[in-house]
Nucleic acid binder design. Sequence first.
DNA 1: CAGTTTTATGCAATTTATTGCATATTGAGT
DNA 2: ACTCAATATGCAATAAATTGCATAAAACTG
Lengths: 186, 186
Amino acid sequence: MALSHAIMTALLEDDMSGYELAKAFDISLGLFWRASHQQIYQELHKLADRGWLQRETVAQAGKPDKIVYALTEAGRSAMAEWVMGNSRVQEGKDDLFVKLYNLAESNAAHLAMEIGHRREQMMQRLYLYEKIRRRHYADPTALPVRRKGVFLALLAGIRQGEHFLAWCDEAQAILATVDGKESDGG
Amino acid sequence: MALSHAIMTALLEDDMSGYELAKAFDISLGLFWRASHQQIYQELHKLADRGWLQRETVAQAGKPDKIVYALTEAGRSAMAEWVMGNSRVQEGKDDLFVKLYNLAESNAAHLAMEIGHRREQMMQRLYLYEKIRRRHYADPTALPVRRKGVFLALLAGIRQGEHFLAWCDEAQAILATVDGKESDGG
DNA sequence: CAGTTTTATGCAATTTATTGCATATTGAGT
DNA sequence: ACTCAATATGCAATAAATTGCATAAAACTG
């Protein structure tokens, strides 16, 4: 009961096919949830069986047919109920930080490199999110209600990303001193 | 291949029983990984079978016997190898942000409440982590190598927490305006 | 026209995580 | 003696997520 809610959230405004959903997860919702297409297709079947989504096959010109999913009334009320329930904190579960607990002279350079890689990925993301923010959420007070929620989520993602970039720089500075120690011995 | 590494990381310095590990996960490593005791016990069996951990039953006065696990040489080298491999970014997967995409007049108050609850939880955590930081990581430059890594992880956790608190305040301010709109339109 | 990429959907197997239950010792409270 | 809480370990069932493979239509590439 987790990916299902993320999927149904993505379907709140636009009806979509599994393929389109997989793409949407890579961008907008991707900050808060990641899912492979296999998982999405499986989940869509379950949700349709439960009566929360409706399937409709749509023929396309120049492309294979697609199956578009739309929220049913039952689906919408299930979502409304879910929002009013309590959610639990979910830990990061990021290997990178666990790896840092294993820091040694022998792996300091590698960890610095991994952090550099993460930094770049985050930069690219932030660029995208900042663009979305400027384009669609420039004046948050003027937004309709639901959009304000999306804005808040986006804001959390951007802030987290910026903090992460700053941390990367700090981490790399410290790792550089660890790594440097070694080179004057050999 | 994920919880196993977190467990073995926790065993780097101290040998521990499953019960003790479960507790350790709630505090120190808990920022980056959460696991139930069932999962930990299962994983410990697997790791022992693989030859990465060694079991030893220890009788205790006034308490039931415990089974203490220690890293083997094979375990240590498996860890060293793992650190040198590449890790992938892992998304947050937090319900709260997905819920925000569903913001409406009807649930704004509830979401503000949930955010308030999260804020309090984070405050308590930060209090604990700041205490650890002041006590054991006051002067990061003077730390031995491995400890510097732990410090960096801790720092990331603290920074993330602080950012989250600030975001909570901002979010609640915006949610308050959403909620207030309703009362004068009635 | 053969080969690759993009769009589009799916099954099967395995691994990982959660939920619920079961067991057993010891100490403290009533 | 009975109950409760903390310590300590585990099984079984289910749910969720990952990995690998399979299919197929159309467009673009050479």
